[in-house]
Every structure is written in C-alpha cells, then in structure tokens.
Nucleic acid binder design. Structure first.
Lengths: 253, 253
DNA sequence: TTACAATTGTGTACCAATTACACCATGCAT
DNA sequence: ATGCATGGTGTAATTGGTACACAATTGTAA
C-alpha cells in the first residue's frame, strides 16, 4: 500500500495517464482442496474486501489493461480472461466519490468521478498464483466461495454476475483446462464441476461422458497415496478441447 | 441531420453533458417477410452505414442511455435491450478521431477522443418501429441480414458479435416474444428460429416442441388468404414464457 | 499374510427426449 | 368437384441421459 503522500501523488497523476470514468474489475477464480476460490483484496483501514481492479491507460486496449492488472496481482502472464458485463450505475461508486470529493477540484479529481466498470472473469491454476496487494491494500488472498467476506461498493454484484456467467459458459469455454493443474484425476475434475454447478453429479456417468468428449489424455501414471485404489491421471488434449468447445459440449450438465 | 453550424455547437457542448470516452452502439433486430433485419443509418456524404448509437449523460445509468437512444431512433418506449459486449480497442474510432482532430484543442474536443463502446442488442416488433435518422444522418432504415451494406468503423464486428450472442441466448431470452407481432402463426415463428439459427428445422417437431413448452396461447382465429389450409394464430403466454426462460428452454435447438 | 474398507473403473438396463416420417385436414384454384 | 400445397396430429426408431450393479485396486488392520 502506498503512503498517504504517495497516494496523493498518484491521484494527481491518474487523470493524466488513465482514461477517465473507466475502470476494470476482475473476478479471479481458482480451485483448491475441492473448493472454488476468489482472489480478493483488503486494506487494514477498512473492513470490506474488494476485487482486483484498475484503470485503462490512455492508449491501451482494454484486454491488455485487464492482463496488466492481473499480472500485477497474480504474477501470471498469459491469463485466461473473459469479459462478462459492464456495470454502469451512476451511483455504483458513490461512497468512494464522497471520500475523495474534497481532495482536488472536481475536473482534476480522477477518483471523484463516476466510474463505469468493465467486468472480466479469470480462470487460473491456483498453484501458479502469487497473490500481491495493490496500492490501496495490505492483504491480497484467496477467499473460499463458501465463506465470503463483506464486499465494497457493488463488488458483490460483480462477483455474482461473474459466477452466473461462469455457470452458463461451462460448456463453451475451456473452464476445466484453465482451472485444473496440468495433471489431475477424474474425481478431482468432477469436484470442480460439482463446485461450479453447486450440485452432485454421478461419478460413473461423469467419467463416461467426459471421456466421450475425447478431450482428455489418459496418462500411464496413477495418483498413489490415498488408502484406496489409485486413480489414473489425465491431462487435457488442448487441440481437441478447443475444437469441441467450438460446437459447445453437447447439451450441458 | 444537423447543419454544419449546429454540428459545431453540438461538438462544443457534448463534452460538458456526456461522459467522455464512452459511447453506446445498438444492434436493433427486427423480423419481416421471413427475413431478419437490422436498423442502420447513413449520411448522404458517406457511403458506409452505421449502427444507431449515442452517448451517456453525466448522471445517467447506461441502460437508460441505451433506452433513450433507441427511443429516438425507433419511437418505441419500452424496448427489449441486452448488453452483450464492450469494444475497447484504442484504434476502433481512429478514422473519426482523425476527421475531428483539428476542430478544437484536444482536451476540449469530445470527438477526437478515444471511445469505448458498450454494445446492446435490441429486439423489436418490426411494425412498431418508425426509423428516424440522427444528427449525423439522413437515412435510417432496415437492412436485410442477407444484403448488408459496408459498415463504418468497427460496426461490422459489433453487429456480428451481437448476432452470435443472439444465437447463444435463443434459449434464455424471450427472443420470440420480442420479435414477433402480437399474433402469429406457427410457420411464421418457425421461420424466425430458422433465420436466427440459419438452418432448417422440421416443421412437425418444431410445432410439437414449441407447444410443449406451454408458452403459447392458441387463438380461435386462423390466418386466411394463402391458397392453402389456414394456419391457427398464436400469441405468447408471457407469464409462462418468463417462467420457462428462467430454467432455459430445455436443451437448445 | 490375509481380510477388509474405501474408492476407482467398467458395463448394462431403463427412461426421456429428439428425430424421422406417415397420414389426414383444410382452403383456394381450376 | 378435384387437385395441390400447406397445416395439423400421430407413431416408430434412434439417441442420449440416468440409475444402478459389479469387479478391480490400494492401504490398513487383524
């Protein structure tokens, strides 16, 4: 987090280097220990948490802005990003606007302006992420979807909209590919689908159907360790996966 | 279309009343004579056509801005609108930016700025629309999807993205309801689906399935006139339609 | 070493939905 | 009145999804 003085310098400069009125907010999903996680940030001064976000440089494509922001928060370079909605209520950032209102004259005051926020969701391999706080926070960490904190501003709406979109797009986007590690077992993949969809699936039918798509490579090795039969490991056949998604995986879950 | 002087006044004022950098573009779909249509505009000075669009007032929710813009172009009040994508390439409005570049100093020059455009698609009953040109055009009219003109800027991309979205959302949005007139025959409705999906559907299965959804009211009257058996007229049962869409119409087309 | 518990891998019978096609009804044209 | 094109309804065949049964494998405990 920046010091008070650094923050003031940042405010003064922001309007010159970033597009006014426009922000980006990202919902970063990860999967670990059979649970879906979202990356969130918090300042020590405030109780509510917020989503990783930022602004668009004057000549920067918005996709690049989202990439850049997430590279800073996660350390990951080529992240899977999907634009999903724009949040444009004039009062959505009212609380922040009030906070910054008297700092500078209105026309120079970047943060006192109304912001229209472009929502992206991101899917990442949990283990590749190095959560890194931003200029306004000391804490950046994964939060479990079953144990979410209080959100700042309209970030709960943004998060919920992202999750709804994720569910709808499960059959059209390479969601498994981006959320799972390189190698995984069938029960692990099933848990991911169950978590996203929030319902139980039949173990045997899931397996048969997944394999039927022809998008998985069965590896030689098995995952030993549990006190049970060792499951086979799989990896995604990226080429077939991409091809299959073009058609949509036949009639969803 | 405004005169040259009026246009200059508009430019000078625009930056004060509208949010900078942000525009809205709408893809308005209609259905007539068994063909899908898009509402488009053209200036006599230019060859390429463009989509109805506009800007967001400083304190206006973006949905209201889209409503307002389309009310002006179509005369319709409560239009079915769906936000579908944001177009944020820094060069997307390059040609326009160049045109207006030298008119005013850069910081006051609303039109010389980069625009991020929020895309909405709209579904309207063809017969309710009164196409009305805007400040920059003399022509506002329906164009057939099979006979599209050259587009300005990135409007072809916007249109294509809208059409793709429409196809994907066919089972989740009240698309038939908004595009068909109050009363219609089953073959007419089928033609709509065939046009959107760009493929033939079986007449008999279409009918059985549509009726199976329980979202249509069969009316007493039939449509006479053709040299054949007179088809029954139907209307949508809006209440059941809304309910059915919440679930998604079972496993798409 | 052997039996057991837990979990994974594979197969099959059943049910629901979609598809393909046959047949009848209706209204205008000749 | 007859024919033809189109609309309306029914039914068999196929496909796909669901619900289980059963065998195989691994570590653990007797």
């Amino acid at each position: 987090m920046l010091t008070k003085q650094e923050l003031e310098e940042f405010w003064a400069e922001a309007g010159k280097i970033y597009l006014n009125h426009i922000s980006i907010d990202c919902v970063v999903f990860g999967f670990h220990g059979g649970q879906m996680k979202v990356l969130m940030l918090k300042s020590n001064n405030e109780e509510a948490w917020y989503l990783p976000g930022g602004f668009v440089l004057k000549k920067e494509p918005i996709e690049n802005a989202a990439d850049r922001i997430l590279k800073e928060r996660t350390g990951i370079d080529e992240i899977f990003l999907q634009q999903f909605y724009v949040f444009g209520d004039p009062d959505r950032s009212k609380i922040h606007n009030e906070m910054y209102k008297d700092m500078l004259p209105e026309d120079q005051n970047f943060f006192a302006k109304r912001f229209i926020s472009i929502g992206y969701y991101a899917l990442v391999d949990f283990f590749n992420v190095i959560p890194t706080p931003d200029n306004f926070s000391e804490v950046c960490t994964w939060r479990d979807l079953n144990d979410l904190p209080r959100f700042q501003l309209d970030h709960e709406l943004i998060f919920k909209t992202a999750l709804d979109t994720l569910r709808l797009q499960l059959n059209y986007q390479p969601i498994g590919y981006n959320l799972m590690p390189k190698e995984f077992t069938m029960p692990e993949l099933q848990k991911l689908y169950e978590t996203i969809l929030d319902k139980k699936l039949d173990r045997r039918n899931f397996q048969r159907r997944m394999l039927g798509f022809g998008i998985l490579n069965k590896l030689e090795t098995t995952r030993k360790g549990g006190a049970h039969k060792a499951p086979y490991l799989y990896s995604f056949d990226l080429e077939n996966y991409q091809a299959a998604l073009k058609e949509g995986l036949k009639s969803g879950w």
